[in-house]
């Protein structure tokens, strides 16, 4: 009798083990542990750059990108056509510390995520990240501020590829990325925190990919998302049809003035940016550059 009980208990345990394995194999249906949906509050961080207006340090600008920045005038923001120009989605993630809501479209039949949608408070920019394997649109389709995005999982990281972007700024003082740019964004949720890393590829104004790594949000279900409307301006400080810019060699922004230096002592040569200025080795090289003694006069740096 005792021996029979042992045999039955062994059979029971075996059956349980096989059932566990079968369940594990069958259970392909994804769960929500890495779901990025929710209301996300941005966490403060240091923006890149020294803060001196016109500073290109740390950005791998091409010569064309540097020349483009040199012609940029702050009056650009008062051009009527640009009054409602939003921060593009990729800049919104890094620049304005803006609240963000992400939500999923789920196919009811399969319970698979078809797409994630994103809404960011600044200028009400929205994105859709297609998860269903669809191709990107034809080359001649319209470009938008958010572009066209597709996503796929790399482990627990959502990797998003964005094409069809409009030209916009990398920093809001003339460092531009072109409409040929492609952005790869890696989203990673760690409990109640969400992190994004973006890698910007631009064959026109960058010589190497530009990587942003400082973007972090915390889950906040009580987050309020306010409206952020904008109506096209027809009258601004800049007469219609005018395009403010500096002629070559005549830029008046502080960073382009060799005679002054910022709070960090960033030399003029470093402020011209370029791929070399991204890497730590450049710090040693920078020590050999002359530094101006004069501080900029007036309100020339962010936060002053």
């Amino acid at each position: 009798m005792h021996r029979e009980a042992v045999v039955w208990s062994q059979r029971l345990v075996f059956a349980l083990a096989i059932a566990t394995l079968l369940f594990a194999s069958w259970s392909e249906t994804p769960r929500a542990q890495t779901d990025i949906s929710g209301n996300w509050r941005p966490l403060p961080r240091n923006q890149d750059g020294s803060g001196m207006i016109g500073d290109l340090a740390g950005v791998p600008v091409s010569p064309g990108g540097r020349w483009r920045a040199e012609s940029w005038s702050p009056d650009d923001f008062d051009v009527a056509e640009w009054v409602c120009r939003p921060h593009a989605w990729d800049y919104s993630l890094e620049g304005p510390l803006s609240a963000m809501r992400l939500w999923a479209d789920v196919d009811q039949a399969t319970q698979e995520v078809i797409a994630y949608h994103g809404h960011i408070n600044q200028s009400e920019q929205e994105t859709t990240i297609w998860m269903d394997g669809r191709p990107h649109p034809p080359a001649n389709a319209l470009h938008t501020w958010s572009g066209f995005s597709t996503g796929e999982w790399d482990g627990d990281t959502l990797v998003v590829t964005t094409t069809h972007l409009k030209e916009t700024y990398i920093r809001r003082w003339g460092i531009m990325r072109s409409d040929q740019s492609v952005v790869r964004t890696r989203w990673r949720r760690m409990g109640t925190y969400l992190q994004a890393t973006s890698i910007l590829y631009d064959p026109v104004y960058l010589t190497e990919p530009y990587i942003r790594t400082t973007m972090m949000w915390v889950y906040d279900p009580a987050l309020l998302m306010g409206p952020y409307p904008c109506e096209e301006a027809t009258e601004t400080a800049v007469p219609r049809g005018n395009v403010p810019h500096y002629l070559p060699g005549q830029n008046l922004l502080p960073s382009w003035n060799r005679a002054i230096v910022d709070d960090f002592g960033t030399p003029y040569e470093a402020r011209l940016g370029g791929p070399e200025t991204m890497y730590p080795e450049y710090i040693a090289k920078m020590k050999a550059f002359p530094r101006a003694a004069a501080a900029p006069a007036g309100s020339t740096e962010r936060g002053r």
Partner: peptide
Amino acid sequence: VSTQAGQGGVRQAAWPPAL
């Protein structure tokens, strides 16, 4: 569960995507 890797059999997209 954590990777959702099996979802839809999504293939790794070619990079950079050709338009």
